[in-house]
């Protein structure tokens, strides 16, 4: 029936609009739920989301050891040439030559935080850190070496 449909339409529309207005009205009257971060003022108490991706870092333990084997999987995975792995050959105690990382060069200014390098890494050597205050005066300062000087690979990581 046309008329009943028409009236049903009108009342349905008014009802659905009222539902939306109820939601915004609730937010309007409940100021405790405000999610704005007053950023520079609350720098000390700022809580970032767990999955926030700001920069690629390589964690080191207290003995200045990392987990990077220098396999260049991250360099191959990177879509825009952000990571450059410089490798060297270490001599193992058995006298064999073994490939290891010399410098893992990371161009922050090119990085899109796509997380592909972290996914590609077979030994979980790199991860995304939740830092975001990256502004510097010179672009060259954004080119970083991720492995700390004098660091070496952790035992048991192949």
């Amino acid at each position: 029936m046309f008329i009943t449909n028409y009236i049903k339409n009108v009342f349905g529309a008014v009802k659905s609009l009222a539902v939306g207005m109820k939601r915004t009205g609730y937010y309007f009257t409940h100021h405790k739920e405000i999610i704005t971060e007053q950023y520079p003022d609350n720098r000390d108490t700022l809580v970032l989301a767990d999955r926030f991706k700001g920069e690629v870092v390589m964690p080191h333990n207290e003995n200045n050891e990392h987990r990077c084997t220098g396999c260049t999987a991250c360099e191959l995975a990177c879509p825009n040439g952000t990571i450059k792995v410089v490798t060297k050959f270490d001599i193992t105690p058995e006298g064999k030559k073994k490939k290891a990382v010399d410098k893992l060069v990371y161009h922050l200014e090119l990085c899109t935080m796509c997380n592909l390098c972290v996914v590609a890494c077979p030994s979980d050597a790199i991860k995304m850190a939740p830092t975001f205050e990256h502004s510097v005066f010179d672009r060259s300062q954004l080119t970083k070496v991720l492995n700390q000087p004098g660091s070496k690979i952790m035992d048991g990581v192949e």
């Binding site: 309007f28 405000i34 704005t36 007053q38």
Partner: peptide, 10 residues
């Protein structure tokens, strides 16, 4: 102000 409060902003 109204817009902000309705969108849970300040």
């Amino acid at each position: 102000r109204v817009a902000a409060w309705m969108q849970i902003r300040l």
